[in-house]
C-alpha cells in the first residue's frame, strides 16, 4: 500500500487484549523461534493475510487477520483439518457462548 492515497494518521494507542496477545504468542511458538518445531514461516503468515479479499482485509482488525492467517496455514500444512476446526468451533460455541 506504499504511496497509495490515504488520510491523516490517527494516533490510536491500544493496549492489546489477552486473546490478541495469545494469537501473537501462538505465532511465535509455531514459527519455531522459541525452540520448538517450525510449523510456519512468517512468509506464510503474510501470504495468507495478503490473500484475504480486500473488503475482508479492511473490515478485520489486525489480530483477526492474524488468527485467520495462522489457522489457514495450519490447515494448509495439515496440522489441523477443516473438519476438526469446524467441530471444535461448534463445540466451544456451545460450551462458552458465541455471537456467531
Amino acid at each position: 500500500m506504499g504511496g497509495l492515497p490515504a488520510g491523516k494518521v490517527e494516533f490510536t494507542e491500544h493496549d492489546y487484549v489477552d486473546w490478541e496477545r495469545r494469537v501473537d504468542a501462538l505465532r511465535l511458538l509455531l514459527s519455531g523461534i522459541k525452540g520448538g518445531r517450525q510449523l510456519m514461516t512468517v512468509d506464510e503468515l503474510r501470504k495468507n493475510i495478503e490473500t484475504l479479499p480486500p473488503d475482508a482485509y479492511e473490515r478485520m482488525s489486525y489480530y483477526e487477520r492474524w488468527v485467520t492467517s495462522i489457522t489457514q496455514t495450519m490447515i494448509q500444512r495439515g496440522v489441523i483439518t477443516t473438519e476438526e476446526l469446524g467441530k471444535k468451533m461448534a463445540e466451544i460455541g456451545k460450551r462458552d457462548g458465541s455471537k456467531v
Binding site: G2, G3, T41, V42, D43, E44, R46, K47, R77
Partner: peptide, 28 residues
C-alpha cells in the same frame, strides 16, 4: 518488492546478507 518501487533506479546502499527466498518460503 513493493509495487511503488518496481521499475525505479537506485543505488546499492549495503549488502545485508543472504536470506531464504520469501517467494518460496511462503509456499511451504
Amino acid at each position: 518488492t513493493p509495487f511503488y518501487i518496481r521499475g525505479h533506479s537506485g543505488v546499492i546502499e549495503r549488502f545485508c546478507g543472504t536470506f531464504g527466498n520469501p517467494e518460496e518460503l511462503a509456499q511451504q
